[in-house]
Design a binder for these strands. Sequence first.
RNA 1: GCCGCCUUAGCUCAGUUGGUUAGAGCGCUAGAUUGUGGAUCUAGAGGUCUCCCGUUCGAACCGGGAAGGCGGUACCA
Length: 488
Amino acid sequence: MSRPKDASRPQARKPRGFPDKSAAMLAAERELVDAISAVYHRWGFDALDTGPFETVEALGKFLPDTDRPNDGVFALEDDDGSWIALRYDHTAPLARYVAEHRAGLPKPFRRYAAGPVWRNEKPGPFRFREFIQCDADAVGVAGPAADAEMIAIAAEAMEAAGAARGEYQIRVNSRLALDAVMEKAGVSDPAQRGTVLRALDKYDRLGREGVELLLGAGRKDESGDFTKGAGLAAEKAGLLLDFAMARAGSRAETLSGLRQLLAGNNTGERAIEEFVQIDEVLTALGVDDAAAAFDPSIVRGLDYYTGPVFEAELLRPFKDADGNEVRFGSVGGGGRYDDLVARFTGEQVPATGFSVGVSRLAAAMAAEAGGAAVGPVVVLVMDRDRVAESSAMAAELRAGGVRAETYLGSSGMRAQMKYADRRNAPAVVIVGEDERARGVVTIKDLKAGAEAAAGVEDNEAWRNERPGQFEAPCSEMVSRIREIVERA
RNA sequence: GCCGCCUUAGCUCAGUUGGUUAGAGCGCUAGAUUGUGGAUCUAGAGGUCUCCCGUUCGAACCGGGAAGGCGGUACCA
């Protein structure tokens, strides 16, 4: 009866966060990668692939806990006892590459990379442990003009990804400005600065009240878990909150607000000057207020960035598989990282870059599109002894540029039709005794057939009508099929 | 990592105050249909009720633990 449990039999279960990808998903990913890469290429970046693994030392400084190299990254011990790990982004490998080959590289060095990255952390909906990033970086360029250009590229990449202007926004801030406001608020302890930055970063999600709690005593979330706050006095927290909320209707308006907030502080003056230059270049490049805004609540990771930082936000909501609206928020980010190469060489090399998370975008678009990918034309086999004839017809279709396959299963016609339907085939080709006798082929347009059948309730009528079906001379088979495929 | 909720057929879910053979819809397979995907009707396959331990004469149901899932939160280079 019931099979005995066999301990040696593995469970057919895949690890979380590594989704199986359908044909539709793969097509969406490839389209996005191609479109975004084309933008980078057009702006003068060269493609470079550094492979999936780096030494943990190369990724090292930014590991959360160097004693446990498997935390955060996927690491394994090499045969010489050293540890290597899968890259968690494209920027750290680039820094290593530049340091390793600095003598032979043109300066500035402009490079783009597209491929999977891996993060060993808790996955969630639209959040994976393996995902594709499309990354562009300019190494050896200092100054806000280079950052402004990256922002313009980010905007163009979003539009190439299918977000019209107004459906996305690049939100720009600066570490300098954050430093300035923390200086003014008297926050100097490194640990406290970290807590403050993390709190400000949550403004989007928690709003002013939530951030206020995190800057002060702390906050209890709805599950009852408590997060300790930065312990700031209300007055200091107020200044930080005013800063985080300083985004106004346009870059110019935000700037004038920041001028007042940061007045009388040296770092603040420098931050303002940086914003002014970025704004000028953005305007010159045609990046308007809808495409890129100054937003002081943008923080991004802690250790890595040294100047301007920015995030690409998708404003258009998507529907998930259950029809619920999903707001995506950030689908890409970047900024200036002047110290990353210096880790290897000791010599400071200024750099700025931007990266798009393609997998989330593709997952969203595929989920919304919902449908399966269009399948091949299926040539049915009516007479098992004449498989070769079907094979020849399928070959003729392929030679004519049509994706086609011969049905090679062992079932009857009904099952073959069901197979074609399930494959989402645009059409089937039927040649049985009748057709052979008259030198014709029967072609059935499955999509037209399904539409025409929607109103037919009577089985006999359905069978007589054979909706979507017609005969054609053998010589016209390829051209008639192509008409159908092109319409699909 | 921490907190909360959940787990019965491929999917969505009923069910039993603990009592012989556990249900529905959808899906799947086959037939009605001799050469036709839809619709309709009929039949069939598919479950140690997530797992382990305990309480009990008896557990899918009660208790404890584990695993997995969902949500929140922390971290996110």
